[in-house]
Design a protein around this nucleic acid. Structure first.
Lengths: 154, 154
DNA sequence: CGGTAAATGTTATATTGTTACGTAACGAGC
DNA sequence: GCTCGTTACGTAACAATATAACATTTACCG
């Protein structure tokens, strides 16, 4: 019943899907895609990832999209709708937040992406439902501009 | 210096760009695209608009995208990043909000889009900048789920 | 071992958006 | 009237993003 896992690097028992020690319980393609995103540190499009992984045997977009789907399901990669790009979650290790809404600030100068899931953010999202009766299933909150460093130094 | 306006339907003097009486100061293509979006009442993709306007002489995506760019600049059409679609602004007439951040709730069942620009929303956006020093230039806030009617009735 | 589910590989296609180029309409000023 | 700059329009080609369809391989488990 367990999904395919790479035999080479499997560690001990699996405690909980989201509690896996990443980089060990991923399949080869998933590890490659996640590593590419982590190394980049900034968002990458699916086709940028594809180009980065040509030497590792990637030939078609679907290989990237499939890995991204899995990684998003695990909550360790997020999609930025306003850029058609993907970014490694900054809390990939502690996996604390799974299906919870997340917001992003995206610096247009240095590319840094920061995640927002503080109390104010949750209150904001919940407030919308409370007032209008809207039942939120999926939230997209992406704020683009200049981060403190780029706004100040420039 | 004035941009081209349709000679046939121009009314009186132009008070302010954003204060134009819509449907009168738009060019032919802009009126067609705006009318298509208004009639639909729900978001349409650029290619759906193109198909709707074939009989009116539209033949290529660029005709749609150019009109959409203008209409977005006027603030009477918004782009929904999470859907790659466009929607007529529900306040197209009073044009009150121009470059200000707007959020959307999008019902996945009936397609209804509602706009959010209340005080809580503005406070939320401003709060992000205040805490982190991030200078927001453009916000994308799209909350998808079920509206009150669809959530209750279903 | 054999069955099953998941992951993979490959080709083709669908969808979304842009570049490049040329034409036409309009107002401003000479 | 005339050119000039600006804006809109038309079309073809292309680039970027994403999915469908189908066959094959891999890992797990009984």
């Amino acid at each position: 019943m367990l999904p395919r896992t790479p035999s080479a690097i499997t560690l001990g028992p699996v405690f909980h899907e989201a509690a896996q020690s990443l980089t060990t319980e991923l399949t080869k393609n998933q590890r490659l895609v996640f590593a590419a995103l982590t190394r980049a540190g900034t968002p990458l499009s699916a086709y940028q990832i594809l180009d980065l992984l040509r030497d590792d045997g990637f030939r078609a977009p679907l290989q990237v999209y499939r890995a991204l789907d899995q990684l998003r399901g695990l909550g360790v990669v997020h999609r930025l709708e306003s850029m058609n790009a993907f970014v490694a979650c900054s809390h990939a290790e502690d996996h604390a937040h799974h299906g919870e809404p997340i917001g992003f600030t995206i610096c247009e100068r240095c590319g840094t992406v920061s995640e927002i899931h503080d109390a104010d953010f949750r209150a904001f999202v919940e407030g919308i439902g409370a007032r209008s009766g809207f039942r939120a299933e999926k939230t997209t909150v992406e704020i683009r501009g200049l981060c403190a460093e780029c706004a100040g130094g420039a």
